[in-house]
Deep mutational scan, measured.
Amino acid sequence: MATKAVCVLKGDGPVQGIINFEQKESNGPVKVWGSIKGLTEGLHGFHVHEFGDNTAGCTSAGPHFNPLSRKHGGPKDEERHVGDLGNVTADKDGVADVSIEDSVISLSGDHCIIGRTLVVHEKADDLGKGGNEESTKTGNAGSRLACGVIGIAQ
């Protein structure tokens, strides 16, 4: 089992970053940390998408990683996509320092995120509470600013 993974985020604009993942036990939580720069100040949706395909930019990554066919939600919700990591918060300089621990994603097994795409979005994720159909699919997080395929790390 891989215990570490990394993702280099890039987009068409100024947004870029490096996100690290570490899972010490196969059924334990995954620590997610790193930094994203070039964002507007505020909240930005942060999700693992189904495919590791960036051939047409971030759009070819498909929908959120959702092997259990659930509705979109927040990272602490029972009803959520596996890939729903909530929001990252950018400061006035456009930098989001990421520090998350998640017990639904994994670096092995059915919820493995390796080979899938991590995406940072234009807007805040409403965590499935926006009151419309799009909220239950995407959290109304808007366009995909930057993305990268999650790969095994040393």
Results as ranks from 00 to 15, higher is better:
89 T>H: 14
66 N>Y: 04
115 G>M: 00
105 I>M: 07
109 G>C: 07
112 C>D: 09
122 E>Y: 07
118 L>N: 03
48 V>S: 04
71 K>Y: 10
146 A>W: 04
85 L>F: 13
120 V>W: 00
65 F>Q: 06
125 D>R: 02
144 R>W: 01
125 D>V: 01
96 A>S: 05
133 E>D: 09
38 G>S: 11
128 G>R: 06
78 E>P: 14
97 D>S: 07
122 E>V: 06
2 A>C: 12
127 L>F: 04
39 L>Q: 14
91 D>Y: 14
85 L>P: 00
138 T>Q: 05
43 L>D: 09
108 S>A: 13
35 S>K: 14
36 I>L: 14
105 I>C: 15
144 R>S: 01
65 F>R: 01
79 E>A: 10
54 N>A: 14
98 V>A: 09
31 K>S: 13
72 H>L: 02
65 F>Y: 14
91 D>L: 06
8 V>N: 11
108 S>C: 09
105 I>K: 03
111 H>W: 12
70 R>H: 11
124 A>I: 10
31 K>G: 15
51 F>L: 05
71 K>P: 05
87 N>R: 02
34 G>K: 03
104 V>R: 13
114 I>C: 10
71 K>C: 08
11 G>Q: 12
74 G>S: 09
153 A>G: 15
151 G>S: 03
63 P>A: 07
92 K>Q: 11
38 G>L: 12
63 P>L: 06
72 H>N: 02
114 I>F: 05
61 A>R: 01
53 D>N: 06
98 V>M: 04
32 V>H: 00
109 G>K: 12
117 T>M: 09
146 A>M: 04
147 C>D: 01
148 G>R: 00
112 C>K: 14
121 H>Q: 01
10 K>A: 13
136 T>Y: 07
59 T>A: 09
142 G>Y: 05
47 H>D: 03
123 K>V: 09
98 V>Y: 15
139 G>K: 03
35 S>V: 13
123 K>A: 12
4 K>D: 06
35 S>Y: 11
90 A>V: 10
70 R>M: 08
21 F>W: 14
88 V>I: 13
17 G>Q: 01
115 G>D: 01
20 N>D: 13
97 D>L: 10
71 K>T: 14
80 R>M: 00
146 A>L: 03
33 W>I: 15
110 D>I: 06
143 S>L: 09
145 L>H: 07
69 S>I: 15
40 T>G: 06
125 D>A: 00
9 L>F: 14
32 V>K: 00
25 E>W: 04
58 C>K: 02
60 S>F: 02
97 D>C: 10
107 L>I: 11
